[in-house]
Amino acid sequence: MEEEDKDLLARYRQGDVDALAVLVERYRRPLFSFILRMTEGKEDADEIFQEVWVRVIRKIDSYRNKSFISWLFRIAHNLVIDRARRRKKFISLDGGMSQSSSEDSGIGRDSTLSNVLPSASPRPSSVIEATELGEKISRAVDELPAEQKTVFVMRTTGELRFREIAESQGLSINTVLARMHYALSKLRIVLQEDYAMLGVDHEM
């Protein structure tokens, strides 16, 4: 049976580096996929992925008994927002015309999730995305409002349960379910014509 996250963390706390390696490997794809989808590109995603684990390593002694995956994705999500906010601030200092950011030091109304997170841009990340349907789904997900996109991407790429998403975001499970529901409704409309194709295995 697979060793639980909390046991691996406990082993690492006692000095067993291999236990941490198991955790990093366990969340390598889900966590990286989440970050990549929420940020601007592979290079940014690499940096954020590394920073997430550095923070986990540094804070491991203060981590207590919450679901590890929720904590992990919470740190990742905070870093994604933080980076987008800084970038936006940098862009507006660098000759942008944004009025609010000059008086608001980049934190507040001007840096709502929807404003700071990157907007849709085609980023082939796997074989299927290179297909037409894959691109359509990818674009439709990028065009979702940020808080719906966050829940949708956590659920699909991160494989977090709704309870874990709620814990990670500090929301009620009903709010998370409602966001997922809105996201699905929008995607269903966008992908209406393609429903016949969905579910068919597009992998080569």
């Binding site: 794809r29 889900p30 990286f32 989808r37 796997s126 789904i137 990818s138 699909t156 790429t157």
Partner: peptide, 11 residues
Amino acid sequence: TARKTLSADGP
């Protein structure tokens, strides 16, 4: 389909 589309290899 979204899972297949959105998942990347890793860092």
